[in-house]
């Protein structure tokens, strides 16, 4: 009997509950849940964004670091290249200089030899001349002494003199 009144829903209460709860549902949905959920979502989004942007910054940093490293190695390479080039140039210059010097030396030697040759030729011709005169003198003396004797002898001496060559 008593229990029956408890488990029998009262229609007046149902009526008011439907109205009050319906109003609460509508107005809370409009003025409370909407802004609250929106704020929660916005915050979630902003946190996610902040996290991703920090991740991005980290990546950027790493990239920058890698770039620096690259620049450093490049600079090092460049330095090495320049040094190598300088060495090469130096070697080239030295080689060229040596060649030039050799050529110049050769030239000097050549000209010296020519000079010597000319001198020698002159000397030889001088000597030839001297010998000629000397031979003539000798021959004169001989001839003076002997020419009268023998005409044929004089011819012979000339012939011999012509054949003499000073080397």
């Amino acid at each position: 009997m008593v229990l029956a009144t408890f488990v029998t829903p009262d229609y007046g209460t149902i009526f008011w509950m439907v109205i009050i709860f319906g109003i609460a549902l509508f107005f809370l949905g409009k003025f409370a849940w909407k802004p609250i959920i929106k704020a929660l979502k916005d915050r979630e989004k902003s946190i996610a964004e902040a996290l991703s942007s920090s991740e991005k910054a980290k990546e950027e940093m790493a990239k920058l670091k890698a770039g620096n490293e690259k620049i450093m190695t490049e600079a090092r390479q460049e330095k090495e290249n320049i040094l190598n080039e300088a060495k090469k140039i130096k070697e080239q210059i030295v080689g060229e200089a040596r060649e030039e010097a050799q050529k110049e030396g050769q030239k000097i030697i050549e000209s010296a030899r020519q000079q010597i040759n000319t001198e020698k030729q002159a000397a030889i011709s001088d000597i030839k001349k001297g010998i000629n005169e000397l031979s003539i003198e000798i021959a004169e003396k001989i001839i003076r002494k002997e020419l009268k004797d023998n005409e044929d002898q004089k011819a012979l001496i000339n012939k011999i003199l012509k054949e003499v060559k000073i080397k």
């Binding site: 609460a24 809370l28 409370a32 704020a39 902003s46």
Partner: peptide
């Protein structure tokens, strides 16, 4: 309910971010 959640909604709007 109204009192609590309208307060929360207000502060949620005001304390954005």
């Amino acid at each position: 309910l109204f009192w609590i959640f309208l307060t929360v909604a207000n502060s949620a709007k005001r304390n954005k971010d």
